[in-house]
């Protein structure tokens, strides 16, 4: 089904571009505007999700998918139901990014950052919609294969369970990378009491490869 892309956060884009504060130069601002228009024109956000009952052994009932790792088990400690989802900006965006890389690398860098911000927005919107749909119950944060100790190889089972490729056209390489690259898979728990929002570097997706952290600094997220 269609996903909702409502905003590309300029702040987030600048952060991906390793902004260290200060005025944004006029030529760059113009480039950001142009790229934003191009990305919005290319993006065809799509999402697929499904609710499952969660068995005590972390298997999703009726499926062959068993969630692995301590981290996801902790996240879902209060949950007996989970949602799997996959969101993507679509192959049109991928094509646009590759075209930019062949033509104008500066544009490609900006578009890539915009794409990252955009897919986060699609995920935020989806999770917001799900939170409403499953109210008055509560959703946990989202958690993806490859985070913490959940093996990236679990992407395969997630893809097979949710029938991702057939439903929204995202494919998986033999090394578990998604194409289109601007795609996200995740598990979200449904709980009967409010769930903590995790903050700080320790729970960040980018913990391992954060440019700020490598320099001993912090981002603003």
């Amino acid at each position: 089904m269609d996903g909702r892309l409502t905003e590309i956060s300029r702040r987030e884009v600048l952060r991906y571009l390793q902004w260290r504060g200060g005025e944004v130069p006029e030529e760059l601002a113009r480039q950001l505007d142009g790229c934003q228009a191009a990305l919005l024109a290319a993006a065809r956000p799509r999402v697929v999700w499904q609710r499952y009952d969660l068995c005590p052994d972390m298997t999703l009932l009726g499926t062959a998918f068993r969630l692995q790792g301590q981290a996801v088990a902790r996240l879902l400690a209060d949950c007996r139901e989970v949602i799997l989802f996959c969101a993507t900006l679509g192959l049109e965006t991928e094509t646009r990014l590759r075209r930019a890389q062949a033509g104008n690398m500066a544009e490609a860098v900006v578009l890539d950052a915009m794409g990252s911000a955009a897919i986060e927005n699609v995920c935020d919107n989806l999770c917001g919609d799900l939170a409403k749909q499953f109210a008055p119950r509560y959703l946990t944060d989202r958690f993806s294969p490859g985070y913490g100790d959940m093996p990236i190889a679990q992407q395969r089972a997630l893809f097979d369970t949710l029938d991702v490729t057939r439903k929204i056209g995202v494919t998986l390489t033999e090394s578990y990378l998604m194409v289109p690259q601007k795609s996200v898979t995740a598990v979200v728990g449904i709980a009967d009491r409010p769930q903590p929002r995790r903050r700080g570097c320790g729970s960040c997706v980018n913990f391992e490869n954060c440019a700020y952290r490598k320099e001993g600094k912090y981002c603003e997220a």
Binding site: L17, Q18, W19, P25, E27, L28, Q31, N104, M105, A106, E107, V109, V110
Partner: peptide, 11 residues
């Protein structure tokens, strides 16, 4: 300078 500016300059 930002990364895109570095690339623009190089181009």
């Amino acid at each position: 300078l930002y990364l895109p500016q570095l690339i623009n300059a190089a181009n």
